[in-house]
Simulated scan of single mutants.
Amino acid sequence: MFFSIIIPLYNRPDEINELLHTLTLQAYRNFEVLIIEDGSVRDAKEIVESYRDRLNVRYYFKPNEGQGFSRNYGFARAKGDYFIVFDSDCLIPPGYLQNVYSFLTSSYVDAFGGPDGAHASFTPVQKAISYSMTSPFTTGGIRGNKKHLGPYHPRSFNMGLSRQVWEKTGGFILTRLGEDIELSIRIQSLGFKTALIPGALVYHKRRTSFLQFYKQIHFFGRARINIYRFFPSQLKPVHAFPAAFTLFLFVTIVANIFGSFMGILGDAVLVLFILLIFFHSWMVNKSAKVAFLSIFAAFIQLVAYGLGFIQDFVKRVIFKHA
Rank of each mutant, 00 (worst) to 15 (best):
I47N: 01
S40C: 04
N56E: 11
I47A: 02
R71V: 12
E32P: 05
D53I: 00
V33E: 06
V48T: 09
R77A: 08
R54F: 10
D81C: 05
N72K: 04
D87R: 03
Q26V: 05
I84N: 04
K62Y: 00
F61P: 02
G39E: 03
R42G: 07
L34R: 01
K79I: 00
R58N: 10
A44Y: 02
R29C: 04
K45T: 11
F61G: 00
S70K: 06
N64S: 11
Y59S: 08
E37W: 01
S50H: 12
N72D: 13
I35S: 04
N56T: 09
D87T: 07
Y73D: 15
R42I: 07
Q26F: 01
D38N: 13
K45S: 12
Y51S: 02
P63E: 13
R77N: 11
D53E: 15
Y59V: 01
F69Q: 05
V48P: 10
F83I: 04
Y51W: 01
G74R: 09
I84M: 04
Y73V: 02
P63Y: 00
E46I: 00
V85W: 01
K62T: 14
N72E: 12
F75V: 11
I36P: 01
F31W: 13
L55T: 08
F75I: 12
F61K: 14
G39Y: 06
G68A: 08
E65W: 01
S70G: 14
R29I: 03
N72I: 12
E32D: 13
L55Y: 03
E37C: 08
E37S: 07
L55P: 05
N30T: 06
A27K: 09
D43H: 13
N30G: 03
K79L: 13
L23A: 03
G66D: 10
I84Q: 00
G74M: 11
R77V: 14
E46D: 15
V48H: 07
V33C: 10
Y73W: 15
A44T: 06
L23D: 04
P63W: 00
D53N: 15
D53K: 13
D38F: 05
F75A: 03
Y60H: 13
Y73K: 12
I84H: 01
Y51Q: 05
F86L: 10
Y51G: 03
E37P: 03
G39S: 03
S40N: 06
L25K: 15
R52L: 03
R58K: 12
D38P: 01
N30D: 15
A78H: 02
D87H: 10
K62Q: 15
N72T: 03
N56K: 13
P63R: 09
E46V: 00
L25D: 10
Q26D: 10
Y73T: 12
Y73S: 11
D43S: 09
A27T: 15
Q67Y: 10
S70M: 12
R77D: 10
S50T: 04
A44E: 06
S88T: 14
Y82S: 01
P63Q: 08
V85H: 02
V57Y: 00
T24W: 07
Y60V: 08
G80P: 02
A76N: 15
K79W: 13
Y51R: 01
N64Y: 07
G39I: 07
K45Y: 08
R54H: 11
G80M: 12
N30K: 14
Y73N: 12
G66M: 04
V33A: 09
V57A: 06
R54E: 15
N64D: 02
N30V: 06
